[in-house]
Design a protein around this nucleic acid. Structure first.
Lengths: 338, 338
DNA sequence: AGCTGGCACTCAGTGAGGCCGAGTGCCAGA
DNA sequence: TCTGGCACTCGGCCTCACTGAGTGCCAGCT
């Protein structure tokens, strides 16, 4: 078990290292933080912390830097979430309120997060799986060609072409549209399949094929779009990563282009509250020297999607967490209003 | 006026420099390209080329590298567009054909371009100004709240909420929807304003306010979305930029996040054919050591949007131009089919 | 038992000095 | 007009020594 003072030393190391980006030595520590003990004592504490795996030396005769485990302890026990200043809060709200549609909300959120945290921001579009249907629209493009448009309660719109096996009359189309909507509007996407299951049977024989095709396209859309969409921004902040960053930055940029990877990254954050994954806690190699701070957001009390930032493990955790949480809240509000 | 051989020397310098990323000297040139003259002769030619501003020396006693002006000459007079191999063409087509909707087409195009050129790819969504209306849909969300959905012939979908000054009956709604569509479907976006101008007059007095509100929202959408959307990808390729690239890469990443900048970059490409902007020809500072290769694409014979790549001035122009042109063609085809 | 001061040791970073070689410019001769 | 020869330049690299921040350990103090 680590004594109070040793935890204090760890905290000081993390803070200094985050600030200076340089290994911190015992003497500098005692000077900058009023620890009230001599460098020699701190050195002993450091030796213990190193034994326990919380800090490490890049080389002999250099200062110490926190390990992933050290950051973990720092985040869990030594640091809180730093709330934003009220001017910052006002700025967030003002900025987000100018958004005209969902795309714009997401785009603004990304910018905002990137600017506030000076890191790479990732925002997931509201998830279809947890959304409900606001409307399904069917349009005839040609006698045997339809367009299916799906609108969610969060304002997301998806559309697909449907090639029908047989021509479909306008009256049948109106009929299908009406019946479909009466069944699914207001329902969750996950419930849709069983709700429309028996729909073809109620149509004339000649139309059944088309109805079935439309329905299967609809269901397909639901499944496909469970692969969520993302928006990222602030990649220029990666240049603040470190000095050696040709090597560091490349895999990160690559990972950021892989939606799948990012989604997993956000998705792993099961916790209803904020999730912080530090360094090697991220399974994806290439992101082992980054940390991810993510949190769910939603229009109601339930999260419909996640957002977060990706930055170097050496980041200002309290500040970042504060910004992420605040932005998530405001986005939730904005979504609820629209 | 430059002699034939001197142009040949310039071409050789460009090719070698692009390949090796290192200043090229007279001896290496004569060896690698069968110029049939001695290094000394080449040196004289180089001196002339340097006087004329086509090449430069990073330091005395180093080889030469092409200047922006040199690349310009190379692109204009010394190099053609390198067509892709047929396996490559097939791969492009296969890859693009799997797309399910417009977003997917654009996303795949970006990936493809980035992969083919090993550079940063930028694809503009089909422009609304040059598009035509496929359908306008109106949905009642609440008695005095509507949703307006706009669908373009290129498959793009935009939606907006409309708060009405007075409740609007379902029959009025159906009426408006029908009349609106009969007027604008198949028309160009730019023509829409005058086509709907007198629409409110044909409605009952009580509904006119709502109709006017809907129309103004529609027109607003048209205007706002003239700010085009973009998708970019392949930013990881920036790491291949150069050795010193902390400084180089940052402004590029920043520029890439500014939609406005990018749009201008693509927009400047007025030429109906392919446009290549080299180094300082890009007005934006920070992009002065990059080149942009852009071309319009469209479903018909007219371009509805642009796509291109951003890379170091030291790039393989013939190959890049070939890839960009080929991708643009196939995307055009795909769009025409859908 | 825990803290402190002292001391020897380590080692990354820096700067000076020297060598190497690719590359140049110029000139005289074919 | 081209070529071979020659002197010159200078960036890159290697070596070497120095410096200083930082460590580990130990004996002594509280």
């Amino acid at each position: 078990m680590l004594s109070e003072r040793r935890l204090e030393v760890l905290r000081a190391i993390v803070q200094d290292y985050v600030g200076t980006e340089e290994p911190v030595g015992s003497k500098a520590l005692t000077e900058r933080h009023g620890l009230g003990v001599s460098p020699a004592t701190v050195r002993n504490d450091m030796a213990v912390l190193e034994d326990e795996g919380y800090i490490a030396q890049p080389h002999t005769s250099a200062g110490r830097i926190p390990t992933d485990k050290g950051y973990r302890l720092f985040v869990d026990r030594l640091a809180g979430v730093k709330p934003l200043s009220s001017p910052e809060r006002r700025a967030i709200q003002n900025f987000l309120e100018g958004a005209v549609d969902l795309d714009d909300v997401v785009a603004r959120t990304v910018r905002l997060l990137a600017q506030l945290t000076r890191q790479v921001a990732v925002v997931q579009y509201p998830s279809l799986t947890r959304s409900t249907v606001r409307h399904v629209e069917l349009l005839a493009l040609a006698p045997a060609r339809l367009m299916l448009v799906l609108i969610t309660d969060t304002g997301r719109v998806e559309q697909r072409h449907v090639d029908c096996p047989a021509p479909f009359s306008d009256t049948s189309l109106a009929d299908l549209r009406a019946r479909l909507n009466s069944r699914v509007v207001g329902r969750r996407f996950t419930d849709v399949p069983q709700l429309v299951q028996d729909l073809p049977e109620s149509f004339d024989l000649e139309d059944r094929g088309t109805v079935a095709t439309v329905l299967s396209t609809l269901l397909e859309t639901l499944v496909e779009d469970t692969e969520e969409r993302l928006m990222i921004g602030g990649t220029a902040n990666l240049t603040r990563f470190g000095h050696d960053f040709p090597l560091t930055i490349r895999p990160v940029l690559e990972a950021l282009e892989e939606q799948v990877v990012l989604l997993k990254l956000l998705g792993e954050a099961q916790d209803p509250g904020m999730t912080v994954r530090i360094g090697h806690e991220n399974l994806h190699e290439g992101l082992t020297s980054t940390s991810v701070v993510a949190v769910g957001y939603g229009s109601g009390d339930e999260a419909v999607a996640k957002l977060g930032v990706v930055g170097p493990t050496r980041m200002d955790y309290p500040g970042t967490m504060g910004a992420v949480r605040a932005v998530a809240r405001y986005v939730g509000q904005i979504l609820a209003e629209s």
